[in-house]
């Protein structure tokens, strides 16, 4: 069965869709009430709010799907902000003609991811647009979390000598979707790194006390994220090319298309800035967690004016900047 415009008009068909697909999967008492807003009992604390819309193609990719990604992305944004994710809202835009089974799979994937993260999906919305006015399905997730009072992460805490840590190989998400997105007869066994990080980050923040700042290097890759950090914190960042973890097949795929791994999206990575003293222990701690074995110190902070430098394996130095324009396959 396919999605029809009437599934989005707010009438009987919309109700049926909500009941059969969303309520059935998300299984939250607030959704069952079908009210204008979810009402959540006494909440308190410093509150974190984040929102992201997901317009990715393909909807399903090795290691995940848009549903998993949408929940993961928002949970990770809260987690790297030092917050414990609590609630998520979900806003779908569906293209007329989408297979309902596709939608169900995605919704179930969201539900699983949210459950795994211990987060409730408390409100949702669905709109259907005419065929050709959407690329199958877009989804917005907005997340709300609460912060422990004693944890304060900030650009301002970053100091000369601090270390830059990443919890594993870069560019895996972008690489896993590359072939289909660029319509190239390419295949590799690269799986997306799409993964919720709130559990790990919660442990890190409990265990270590000199984590200055965190970011998840999604769109734009580690280059863009570190450049943003360097600019905001008004420091320089120096990376060692050889210590940046990257799978050979990720490197291979990207070289074939003329693309640079530093600018490619990650969906289960966190960049941590921490004190030199704690940095090695943080890496060891991470390495002991399954799936985080490639964690590594990849660089350090120096006083500066917002530049990111990369020391190459031949001993040269080059600059990294923010992504400029969507990465396109190149011949030269």
């Amino acid at each position: 069965m396919k999605v029809l415009l009437s599934h989005g008009d707010g009438g009987r068909a919309t109700h049926q869709l909500i009941k059969e697909v969303f309520q059935a999967s998300f299984n939250d008492v607030e959704l069952d009430k079908e009210l204008d807003a979810a009402i959540l009992d006494q909440q308190g604390g410093r509150m974190a709010i984040t929102t992201d819309t997901f317009v990715i193609r393909p909807l399903f990719f090795p290691g995940g799907d848009i549903g998993k990604l949408a929940v993961t992305g928002t949970i990770n944004d809260l987690a790297v902000s030092g917050a414990r994710p609590a609630f998520i809202t979900v806003g779908f835009i569906l293209e007329e003609g989408l297979e309902l089974d596709t939608l169900k799979q995605i919704v179930q994937s969201m539900a699983r991811t949210a459950e795994e993260a211990g987060v409730r999906i408390v409100a949702g919305d669905t709109k259907v647009v005419e065929k050709g006015k959407c690329d199958q399905l877009y989804v917005n997730t907005t997340g709300i979390g609460f912060c422990n009072e004693y944890i304060k992460l900030s650009y301002q805490h970053i100091k000369q000598g601090d270390r830059v840590i990443i919890n594993g190989g870069i560019a895996e998400h972008a690489t896993s979707v590359l072939a289909e997105r660029m319509d190239v007869p390419l295949s590799s066994n690269v799986s997306s790194d799409c993964r919720i990080l709130n559990g790990i980050i919660d442990q890190l923040l409990t265990e270590f006390h000199t984590i200055r700042f965190m970011r998840d290097p999604t769109r734009g890759g580690i280059a863009t994220t570190l450049k943003e950090i360097a600019e905001h914190a008004e420091i320089d960042i120096w990376l060692e090319e050889e210590s940046i973890p990257i799978l050979p097949e990720v490197r291979g795929t990207l070289e074939l298309m003329g693309l640079e791994p530093y600018y490619m999206a990650n969906e289960g990575k966190v960049l941590l800035i921490a004190s030199e003293e704690e940095s090695e222990r943080i890496v060891d701690f991470l390495k002991a967690i399954p799936g985080q074995e490639n964690a590594s110190v990849i660089g350090h902070v120096s006083n500066g004016e917002g530049s990111v430098f990369l020391k190459t394996s031949t001993g040269g130095t080059r600059i990294l900047d923010m992504l400029s324009g969507e990465p396109l396959p190149r011949i030269c």
């Binding site: 020391k311 190459t312 394996s313 031949t314 001993g315 040269g316 130095t317 080059r318 030269c332």
Partner: peptide
């Protein structure tokens, strides 16, 4: 042009710069 990029990206241009000025030519189509 691919040499131009390679010399820069790998840092070899930087490394050789005390001895050699590498000039870029007409090789970007």
């Amino acid at each position: 042009g691919t040499h131009t990029v390679s010399f820069s990206k790998t840092g070899v241009r930087d490394l050789l710069s005390p001895y050699i000025d590498l000039t870029s030519g007409p090789g970007c189509p």
